[in-house]
Amino acid sequence: MDSLVVLVLCLSCLLLLSLWRQSSGRGKLPPGPTPLPVIGNILQIGIKDISKSLTNLSKVYGPVFTLYFGLKPIVVLHGYEAVKEALIDLGEEFSGRGIFPLAERANRGFGIVFSNGKKWKEIRRFSLMTLRNFGMGKRSIEDRVQEEARCLVEELRKTKASPCDPTFILGCAPCNVICSIIFHKRFDYKDQQFLNLMEKLNENIKILSSPWIQICNNFSPIIDYFPGTHNKLLKNVAFMKSYILEKVKEHQESMDMNNPQDFIDCFLMKMEKEKHNQPSEFTIESLENTAVDLFGAGTETTSTTLRYALLLLLKHPEVTAKVQEEIERVIGRNRSPCMQDRSHMPYTDAVVHEVQRYIDLLPTSLPHAVTCDIKFRNYLIPKGTTILISLTSVLHDNKEFPNPEMFDPHHFLDEGGNFKKSKYFMPFSAGKRICVGEALAGMELFLFLTSILQNFNLKSLVDPKNLDTTPVVNGFASVPPFYQLCFIPV
C-alpha cells in the first residue's frame, strides 16, 4: 500500500510540474494548442506526416506557434517570411542545433551535424575549407563525379535492359564520391566492405524516417530501456565508426604531411598542428563522427533524390523527352556531361530543381535551437528552445509555385524558357546551418541524371499514369515507394 501511495504522489508531482512548466512558459512563447500533461501535443500531431499537421496548425495559430513534445516546448516556423527572418536575418541567433537524443547517444555531441557552439563552428569551418581545397564546386571533385558517372552508366548497362530496382546502384554512385573525398578511394560496386557500408546507410535513412524515431526523440528514456529499431540505428553508426577508425589508422601509418590526399589526411594534419593548443576540438573521436556525418549527409540524401527523380521522369515521359532533346543538342553522344553545360541547359536545370522542390526530401529539416534569449515577432523565446522549420511550407508555397503539388519544371523557367532562380528554393535548409555539401549534391544530381539520360531511355513496367509517387515514409525524410524500371541503351 505504501508503495502505491508513493507512486501516486510521484505521478501527481510530475503532472503538477508539467502543468507549471507549460503555464509559466506560455506567456512568453508564441500561441499554440493546449498541451496535455506529460505528453504535450503529441496526440494532435500525425507522426506519419508531421508536415501536414504543421500546415493545419498554422492555419489556426499563424506562421509562428508553439507545440509541446512531452514536456519540451518547440517553436514552429511556417512559411517563407518566418523562416527567412529566423535563419537568414537572425542567422546567428537561430544557428543552434536542437535536442536530438538519439544523435546524442550516437555521437556524444561530436561531428558537424549535431554539434553546437565553438566545437560546431570550428569543425564546420575546417570541413568547408577542406572540401573547397579539394575542389568542391571546382574541377578536381567534378572529375571524381564524372568518373563515377561513367562507372554508374557501365553498371546500368550490365542490367541488359531487364527490369531492376535502382535503389542499390543509385546509392553506390554518391557513396563512392564521398569515399573518394574521405578515403581517396572508390570501391567496386561488388566489394563486400562497400556493400556493408551501403547497407547500413540505407537502413539508417529508413529507420530515421519512421514514426518510432519521432517518439524516441521526444521521450528519450525509451532509447535506453525499450527495444526497437533505434538500437539497430545505433549499432549501424557504431559499425561505421569502427570502419572509419580502421581507415584512420591506415592513414596514420602512411600519411605524407607534405601531400595530403583526402579529408582524413587533412584532419590528422590539423590534429598535429593543434596538439599544443589544448583542449582542441580536433580529436580522433571528432574525426570519426565528422566522417560519419559526411557519409550520412552525402550519400543517402543524394541517392534518395536520384531514385525519386527517375520515378518522376517515368511518370512524366514528356519531361524526359525534353531533357534528352536538350542533352542531344548541347552535349551530344561523344563526350561526358560537365558542369559548364548546365548554363546552356535551362530546361534540365529546371527539372533538377523541380525534383528537389517537389519531393521535399527533408520536410522539417533537422531541429534548430536559439543560442540566446531572443525577441522574435513580439515573442520571447528562451535560450536553448528547439525550433522546428517547415521546409515544406517554403518549397510548396502556392504563391511562389502555382499548383505546388504538381510536378512542373516551369516553376523554374521564365516566359522565355530561361532558368529562373527562386529564393524559396531551400531543399538544403538556409542560413548558417545550410548543408555543407550543397554544391557537391547539386553537381552530382546534374551529372548523374544527364549521364543516365544521355545513355538510356527509361521504360516503366506499368502505365506511367498508374505510377504512385507518394512517399512511403514522410517523417525525417521523404522516401519514394518501391518501383522497377528498364534502362534501355540509346
Score class of each variant (00 low, 15 high):
S3C: 13
S3R: 12
V5S: 11
L7P: 10
L9Q: 14
L9H: 09
L11G: 14
R21E: 12
Q22S: 13
P33R: 02
T34M: 13
P35A: 10
P37I: 04
G40H: 03
Q44V: 06
G46W: 07
I47Q: 13
S53I: 08
S53R: 13
Y61C: 03
G62D: 02
P63D: 14
F65C: 03
T66V: 03
L67G: 02
K72C: 08
V76E: 03
G79F: 01
E81G: 09
V83Y: 07
E85D: 10
A86M: 07
L87G: 07
D89T: 10
F94N: 05
G96Y: 10
R97F: 01
I99R: 15
F100P: 15
R108N: 15
F110L: 14
F110Y: 15
G111P: 15
S115G: 10
G117F: 06
K121P: 04
I123V: 15
I123F: 06
R125L: 05
F126C: 07
M129E: 12
M129Q: 14
M129G: 13
R132P: 04
R132M: 07
F134T: 13
F134K: 14
R139T: 12
S140E: 10
I141R: 00
I141D: 00
E142T: 03
E142M: 04
D143Y: 08
V145Y: 00
Q146N: 06
C151Y: 15
C151I: 05
E154V: 07
E155F: 14
K158F: 04
K158V: 04
K160F: 06
S162P: 01
P163T: 05
P166Q: 01
T167Y: 06
L170K: 00
G171R: 15
A173R: 01
I178R: 01
N196R: 14
L197D: 02
E203A: 06
I205Y: 04
K206S: 09
I207T: 06
W212I: 10
I215G: 05
I215C: 08
C216I: 14
F219R: 06
P221N: 12
I223F: 15
I223V: 12
D224C: 09
Y225P: 08
L233H: 04
K241W: 03
K241L: 03
M255L: 15
D256A: 08
P260R: 09
P260F: 04
P260A: 07
K270Q: 15
K270H: 10
E272T: 09
N277L: 09
N277I: 10
E285T: 08
S286A: 15
E288P: 06
N289F: 10
V292L: 14
L294R: 00
G298R: 00
T302H: 01
S303N: 04
S303Y: 01
S303F: 01
L313W: 02
L314P: 01
V319E: 06
T320L: 11
A321E: 10
A321Q: 12
Q324P: 01
E325M: 10
E325T: 12
E326V: 00
E326Y: 00
E328H: 13
V330L: 06
G332S: 08
R333V: 07
N334H: 13
S336H: 11
P337L: 05
Q340M: 13
Q340E: 10
H344L: 12
V355T: 10
Q356G: 07
I359T: 12
I359M: 08
L362T: 14
L362D: 01
L362E: 03
T364A: 08
A369C: 14
A369D: 12
D373M: 02
I374M: 13
R377K: 12
L380H: 14
L380W: 10
K383Q: 07
T385W: 03
L388I: 13
I389S: 06
L391Q: 10
L391K: 05
T392I: 04
S393F: 00
L395C: 09
L395Y: 04
D397L: 03
N398R: 12
N398G: 13
N398F: 10
N398Y: 11
F401P: 01
N403H: 12
N403V: 09
M406A: 15
D408R: 03
D408C: 05
H411P: 00
F412V: 00
E415M: 08
M426T: 11
M426A: 12
S429T: 06
S429D: 05
K432C: 04
G437M: 05
L445Y: 04
L445T: 11
F446I: 01
F448P: 00
L449G: 02
S451D: 03
N455P: 00
L458T: 01
S460A: 14
S460R: 03
N466D: 15
A477Y: 07
S478A: 10
L485A: 07
I488G: 02
P489G: 02
P489V: 00
V490G: 04
